[in-house]
């Protein structure tokens, strides 16, 4: 009994050891604390990048972006959120009511769940599966199906086309993406996230496998449906794609979904190719989030510059270039690390 009581005070802020402690009270408490911390990280990251995206795209376009609410318009997104949540929630008569209501919240919870599976620092991680990274990618490839169901539930023709496109893109990028991850697995001799990060202490995988990084970055853009692969929400063609018949609160939710998925994608790239939390001086979590932020900024800049790809050229690009490149990368990884 005394032993159990002494552990937490000795551990200080180490959430991981709370979760791993044999006492179920501390374990559950640790998981709740972890979930709250991650929720705060997602919210702050999503909010700041929602604002940063508007500001950065405005800079590229020689505009000012939001300036009115708060210093540098930092509170503009909050004002928008209040406006969106205050609007009436209209559900079309022709919609599949149950799916319409639960579809988008389900998608958001899946993406948050995926972030919860990730470690943020040695002292801040909830799970430590042997095949952790594979589990994440398996669940990640399941999200377009959920999206498909949500889009069909609105029974709008634009949403239907958008959903079909979403699933079609899945065909082109899923295989190269998994192959790029497999190359990292070969290099790190395992799929445990912590061991992937520690394997990069002598040199990040981005140096050894630039091809793999390129393939993963491009496929991640497709997975997140960011430009040039934003066919799902092609606003000049499909108005708002799968969200055409959704009302304002759902739109706010979809924005949250977009940014939480952007955080997830950036974190995955950071962990797989940029050594995760490895770095001198600063605490691990700062390194991890700083690296992820740089990748997110790249994703935003791409949005400001490129035009949208067409569905057939994405399929062609996936099978003609990404798949061979990821196979070559696999061979390179095998030669260097095995």
């Amino acid at each position: 009994m005394t032993n159990n009581l002494q552990i937490p005070f000795g551990m200080g802020l180490n959430v991981t050891s709370y979760i791993n402690s044999p006492n179920p009270v501390y374990s559950v408490g640790g998981i709740i604390a972890f979930a709250i911390i991650v929720a705060i990280i997602i919210s702050i990251f999503g909010y700041i990048f929602g604002w940063l995206e508007r500001k950065m795209i405005a800079k590229v376009q020689h505009r000012h972006g939001p300036t009115y609410v708060g210093k540098f318009g930092i509170l503009q997104n909050f004002a928008d959120l209040v406006k969106l949540l205050a609007k009436e929630d209209i559900i079309p008569d022709s919609a599949e009511r149950t799916l319409y209501i639960i579809g988008l919240p389900l998608l958001v919870s899946v993406s948050i769940f995926l972030v919860l599976l990730l470690p943020f620092a040695p002292s801040l991680q909830a799970t430590n599966f042997a095949f952790g990274i594979l589990i994440i990618f398996v669940i990640l490839s399941f999200t377009p199906i959920l999206l498909f169901i949500t889009a069909f539930s609105t029974s709008n023709k634009f949403a239907d086309i958008s959903a079909q496109r979403s699933v079609l893109i899945l065909l082109s990028y899923e295989l190269p993406m998994i192959l790029a991850v497999a190359a990292v697995g070969i290099a790190a001799h395992g799929y445990n996230i912590a061991s992937i990060i520690s394997a990069q202490s002598n040199g990040i995988f981005a140096i050894f496998m630039p091809l793999g990084l390129a393939v993963l970055f491009i496929t991640m853009l497709a997975e997140l449906e960011r430009p040039p692969f934003d066919l799902r929400e092609a606003d000049s063609e499909l108005i708002a794609g799968w969200l055409t018949d959704m009302s304002a609160p759902y739109y706010a939710l979809s924005l949250f979904l977009d940014y939480s998925r952007m955080l997830l994608g950036s974190l995955l790239i950071t962990i797989l190719f940029f050594g995760g939390w490895e770095g001198p001086l600063l605490p691990p979590i700062v390194w991890l989030l700083a690296k992820a932020s740089v990748i997110s900024i790249f994703i935003i800049i791409i949005r400001a510059t490129t035009v949208r790809m067409r569905i057939d050229s994405i399929l062609k690009f996936g099978w003609k270039w990404l798949l061979p490149l990821s196979l070559i990368n696999l061979v390179i990884a095998y030669i260097i690390f095995a």
Binding site: I57, V60, H62, R63, P228, D230, S236, R303, A304, R308
Partner: peptide, 17 residues
């Protein structure tokens, strides 16, 4: 035209300016 093929308003803003 760039908007129509899916650009995020960049050429649009430049053109207007």
């Amino acid at each position: 035209m760039c908007n129509d093929i899916g650009q995020m308003f960049t050429a649009f803003m430049w053109g207007f300016q």
